[in-house]
């Protein structure tokens, strides 16, 4: 009997906790919006974060994008060959990259790289009282720490995604045309014929949303860290897991909404 009650109690707490957390994240988001529009808007920290989130993620995004495009071409080729539809490999790779894989993989990579760093950085600042110090110096940490990270993520994710899309198609082209001997003209022709401007732009809008999600969750987890170095580690892990899950879940809904 006690065991049953305990289980119920545990589930109840877990649900309550996650609802509460969702509410707090949303609250943080609102305060970010409020601080975003309250002058002065300092560009320097934003650029610093843009460099961190965007420029320093290029390498990993290019790497994952290229290999994703390559493996997509390889896999779809074997499937499409059964229907003699090898010429559609390029279009499939391009469509998959622009609509789904470009934004999602970029967001996941940036989550792993920058989202975790945000959580760790803010978590450390929290446990070493740097956040308190900001308060004491009458500088709002939301404005000073979170706004630049979120702005940078939202702005940079689409750019990283377009790079990912591009190198993905290039990777697919390399495998399709040079290794699998698909006619290059038909490969490109089908891409330009089937992929539309909306596919690219909707992918970029998605990416911006993912940037919002990963930075918001990363900052939230870091900002509310407790428990010293161990707490920082826990916050980082939670931030990456929660952000990745939220990116994938929201991807479904964004896709359903857009396409």
């Amino acid at each position: 009997m006690n065991f049953v009650l305990g289980a119920v109690d545990y589930v109840g707490r877990a649900v309550l906790h996650s609802v509460e957390e969702a509410g707090r994240i949303f609250q943080l988001f609102l305060s970010v919006l409020a601080w975003l529009v309250r002058p002065p808007l300092r560009l320097r920290p934003i650029f610093k974060q843009m460099e961190f989130v965007g420029v320093r993620s290029i390498f990993v995004v290019v790497l994952t994008g290229t290999f994703t495009g390559m493996v997509l071409a390889l896999q779809t080729y074997h499937g499409f060959r059964m229907f003699s539809a090898e010429s559609m490999v390029g279009a499939t790779v391009a469509l998959s990259m622009t609509r789904e894989l470009g934004p999602v993989l970029t967001a996941l990579m940036v989550t792993a790289r920058a989202g975790s760093a945000m959580a760790a950085e803010l978590g450390t600042m929290r446990v070493t009282e740097q956040i308190d110090a900001l308060y004491v110096m009458a500088a709002n940490p939301v404005k000073y720490l979170i706004v630049p990270r979120m702005v940078a993520s939202v702005v940079m994710l689409p750019f990283l995604t377009i790079v990912s899309d591009f190198v993905g198609v290039v990777g697919g082209y390399f495998v399709g045309v040079h290794l699998l001997r698909i006619n290059s003209g038909i490969f490109m022709k089908n891409i330009t014929k089937i992929v539309e401007l909306d596919d690219i732009f909707n992918g970029l809008i998605k990416a911006a949303f993912f940037g919002l999600i990963l930075s918001l969750i990363g900052c939230y987890k870091g900002f509310n860290t407790t428990g010293g170095a161990e707490g920082v580690g826990r916050a980082t892990t939670e931030a990456v897991v929660l952000a990745s899950v939220m990116i994938l879940i929201s991807d479904y809904f964004l896709t359903a909404l857009m396409f």
């Binding site: 070493t128 009282e129 740097q130 308190d132």
Partner: peptide, 9 residues
């Protein structure tokens, strides 16, 4: 003045 100084790293 914070315990560990809380300087911004």
């Amino acid at each position: 003045l914070f315990q560990e100084a809380a300087l911004f790293d």
